[in-house]
């Protein structure tokens, strides 16, 4: 079992193998993303019941929560990939980490923007300086920092190392985001989904939300693979197999 994992890990480290296997995965993840996002959006917007207090503005939850979950998961993934690249000098891991940053920044921005638009009719304010919102804003700046570091070096290796270190340090912010609604007084409502308890909302409300979360994850996987493949094409462009691939079309 462990041997198999090690073998898989080594193969993942080969850009050519990674390129080929993700080429086969992308259509499936892409199709799943489209289906889940379409079903979830129509369900959440038109069929889910409205909230008895918030009315229909509550429907923003179906993009706000998935984006916020993804913003944190992607940062975590970026730190792990960066760490693997740092320790084992695995080029593919560096490229995955690099590809995470712009998608994660987008998700963080979406979470902040939809939160502001939801906050206006619900709290009466676009923005409040409370712990949850502030720590999410810090997450956005961490993403910007990583993106800036990626292009601040001539050597791709130094860029990968610097951004990996910032990602690993920045991971401290993730538990702060998670527990911010418990540690400090806040307007923000507590977590919708937890692993240990049943959701506080009825099934008709949380099922479309779950569909959207899965859709967002599939979307992330698709774009992450597309971006990493481009990184591979760029960095391995002197190898024969990449030249053969690019000149085919």
């Amino acid at each position: 079992m462990f041997d198999k994992f090690v073998a898989w890990f080594h193969r993942m480290g080969s850009p050519k193998w990674f390129y080929e296997i993700t080429g086969r995965w992308i259509p499936w993840f892409g199709a799943a993303a489209v289906i889940f996002l379409l079903v979830g959006t129509v369900w959440g917007l038109a069929f889910a019941p409205q909230d008895y207090q918030q009315g229909n503005s509550f429907r923003i939850i179906y993009i706000h929560v998935p984006a916020a979950i993804l913003a944190q998961s992607i940062f975590f993934a970026m730190a792990i990939a960066g760490g693997i690249g740092l320790i084992w000098k695995m080029k593919v891991a560096d490229m995955v980490a690099r590809s995470c940053a712009p998608i994660g920044a987008t998700m963080t921005f979406v979470a902040l923007f939809t939160g502001a638009v939801w906050g206006k009719p619900t709290w009466g304010a676009w923005w409040v300086w409370d712990a949850r919102l502030t720590s999410m804003l810090i997450l956005l700046f961490l993403y910007f920092g990583v993106i800036a570091l990626q292009s601040a070096f001539d050597s791709k290796q130094s860029a990968a190392r610097a951004s990996a270190i910032l990602s690993l340090v920045g991971v401290v912010n993730i538990p702060i985001i998670k527990y911010s609604v418990e540690w400090w007084n806040t307007l923000h409502q507590p977590a919708t989904f937890t692993l240990t308890e049943k959701p506080a909302m009825p099934v008709e409300m949380w099922l479309p939300l779950l569909v959207m979360v899965i859709g967002f994850y599939c979307f992330f996987a698709t774009v992450l693979m597309m971006r990493t493949r481009n990184e591979i094409l760029e960095r391995e462009k002197r190898t024969q197999w990449v030249q053969g691939l690019l000149s085919k079309k």
């Binding site: 009315g55 229909n56 429907r59 923003i60 638009v117 009719p121």
Partner: peptide, 11 residues
């Protein structure tokens, strides 16, 4: 959207 159309569609 029960008067919340602007917010929902903007998001």
């Amino acid at each position: 959207m029960g008067g919340h159309g602007l917010y929902v569609w903007l998001a």
